[in-house]
Design a protein around this nucleic acid. Structure first.
Length: 269
DNA sequence: TCCTATGTTGTATG
DNA sequence: ACATACAACATAGG
């Protein structure tokens, strides 16, 4: 379930092992697609015996440091998760990576094998990491930058633009719907056609939803009933704000749920 | 059997 | 070079 908040949750799930040594490293024989750009033997050789030193998350990207200069990059794909298990954990079918410590096993599970494992050696984080765009909650996520990006993607539906990780790292399919619903912007409207009110609402709401989602996962672990999240998954549900029946369509190849009353579609000229 | 699913990427087209 | 659109990837569950 990896969007921004779940990725952050995954990072914390491994933190229980910080400061402890990796006694063994196991890569599942079926991890071929996920461990596709690194040699399996190299992963084992690089990480085994090292102490787990740091964990970082940026958008949907995760980075873990072992020893002084060994970095493990993870992307959870569509259905990946991280967990700490008992030390004698027997790897399940989709446990693609298991890092053994004395007191626990740190496990990367990926049911759909859309995730990605990377490796980097050096005192600094890998170049791709350093080049990642600013977090939406950082001070570098500015309104002018947001506006310029909307202009660049002027002919795309705003729903599609919100999924662009170069500007909205961490925003995924359900978060994009949540943002648009709260900002009262139709997902079908082109990014270049947004009026100034809609642009401000979106800019504010992107940050609000990202912050709130992390807080919810941290505290309650369940999104409240007044979130669109709880109502977007099947046909026939009602808008938790106005009670009108929700619409479900496909935009840019992705399931999109919105309220036709709160988010009136663009009127065609 | 067919459809769906919280994501990215390669390729084709304009 | 840039923007846009979409099939493809692998798997499980309804």
């Amino acid at each position: 379930m990896p969007e921004l908040a779940e990725v952050e949750h995954a990072r914390r799930a491994w933190n229980v092992g910080l400061g402890r040594r990796l006694l063994g490293v196991e890569v599942s024989p079926s991890a071929g697609r996920v461990v596709r750009e690194v040699d399996v033997a190299c992963v084992v050789r690089t990480l085994r015996g090292q102490i787990f030193r740091a964990s970082l998350a940026r958008g949907k990207q995760l980075l873990f440091r072992f020893g002084k200069d060994r970095w493990l990059g993870l992307h959870l794909g569509m259905a990946g998760s991280l967990a700490a298990r008992p030390p004698d954990h027997l790897p399940g079918k989709h446990d693609l990576l298991v890092l053994r410590q004395r007191a626990r096993a740190l496990v990367f599970t990926d049911l759909r094998h859309f995730g990605r494992v990377r490796l980097h050696l050096g005192p600094e984080p890998p170049p791709y990491w350093t080049a990642l765009p600013p977090d939406v909650l950082s001070s570098d996520f500015t309104f002018p930058r947001f506006e310029a990006f909307c202009l660049r993607r002027a002919r795309s539906p705003v729903k599609t633009v919100l999924l662009d990780q170069r500007l909205f790292p961490g925003v995924g399919n359900w978060m994009a719907d949540e943002i648009l619903w709260r900002a009262r912007v139709s997902p079908a409207r082109n990014a270049g056609d947004l009026d100034v009110r809609a642009r401000h609402a979106l800019f504010r709401t992107v940050r609000w939803v990202c912050r709130a989602a992390v807080a919810v996962i941290d505290e309650a672990w369940e999104y409240p009933p007044h979130w669109l999240f709880r109502h977007r998954w099947e046909d026939g549900e009602r808008c938790p704000r106005c009670g009108r029946g929700l619409s479900r369509v496909v935009i840019g190849g992705r399931r999109t749920c919105f309220c036709p009353r709160c988010q009136p579609p663009p009127t065609r000229a």
